[in-house]
């Protein structure tokens, strides 16, 4: 079996990459999108207060049904610091601080052919020295807090800190959020965030 064999198999499969972000996302699981509704409900993480839904806390557990329901909008992220330097090439260093594995897999998924992050100039790196942004997943844990500090020191500037998923942002239902200890330039909501949400947030983070 040689490389040409796999090359041909790849060619025969055809292009599977979707047109997102030029075209709307396909096939979105509802419970990874914005919630809309009215009234106060018994939310286990107080993501609904005074009738307002807070994506930074929501763990998408469905307890607020039927008062609140998902509306299909995947834009559940906030970008408070962006950098156009990364427009052509944006290298991400993933860091699992104390995640359940689902955030890890969803981040990994933006490399799947349906999304193909590389066509958008987004890449993973496994060393902070080559990273433009660190993507932190999971709750804050003491051991990984130190690793995170060292990784941030090792990263060259300019750099962005991205907190991905309810655990990293607010602690979710598991623990303490990483943003309690480190300032994040970008927060991406979800438990776990949808790959479309992750891609949109990353593009916004580089000023698009």
């Amino acid at each position: 079996m040689n490389i040409n064999f796999w090359f041909l198999k790849g060619i025969f499969k055809g292009i599977k990459t979707e047109k997102f972000p030029k075209k709307a996302p396909l096939d979105i699981a509802p419970w990874s999108t914005a919630l809309v509704g009215k009234g106060n409900v018994d939310c286990p993480v107080e993501a609904i207060k005074d009738g307002k839904w807070n994506f930074e806390k929501c763990i998408f557990c469905r307890r607020c049904l039927p008062e609140y329901a998902p509306n299909g909008d995947t834009a559940i992220y906030k970008v408070s610091g962006n950098d156009r330097t990364f427009k052509k090439s944006f290298h991400l260093f993933p860091l699992d601080s104390g995640a359940c594995g689902a955030c890890n897999v969803e981040l990994h998924n933006i490399a799947a052919p349906q999304y193909d992050m590389t066509r958008l100039g987004i890449f993973f790196t496994n060393t902070p020295r080559h990273a433009d942004a660190i993507v932190i997943m999971g709750v804050w844990t003491e051991g990984m807090g130190k690793v995170l500090e060292r990784a941030l020191e090792a990263m060259p500037g300019p750099k962005l800190v991205i907190a991905m998923g309810a655990c990293a942002i607010s602690g979710g239902i598991i623990g303490t959020g990483v943003t309690d200890k480190f300032n994040a330039d970008v927060v991406i909501g979800g438990c776990p965030p949808n790959p479309y949400t992750i891609l949109s947030a990353l593009m916004k983070a580089r000023g698009e």
């Binding site: 096939d27 979105i28 699981a29 509802p30 419970w31 990874s32 763990i59 998408f60 557990c61 469905r62 307890r63 689902a102 969803e106 998924n109 799947a112 052919p113 349906q114 999304y115 438990c191 776990p192 949808n194 790959p195």
Partner: peptide
């Protein structure tokens, strides 16, 4: 694998069966 995640998401409402 992504196709399976979408199938699960479509049938259960959540890609990882939460809730």
């Amino acid at each position: 694998r992504e196709k399976v995640s979408r199938i699960i998401g479509k049938h259960s409402g959540h890609r990882y069966f939460y809730g």
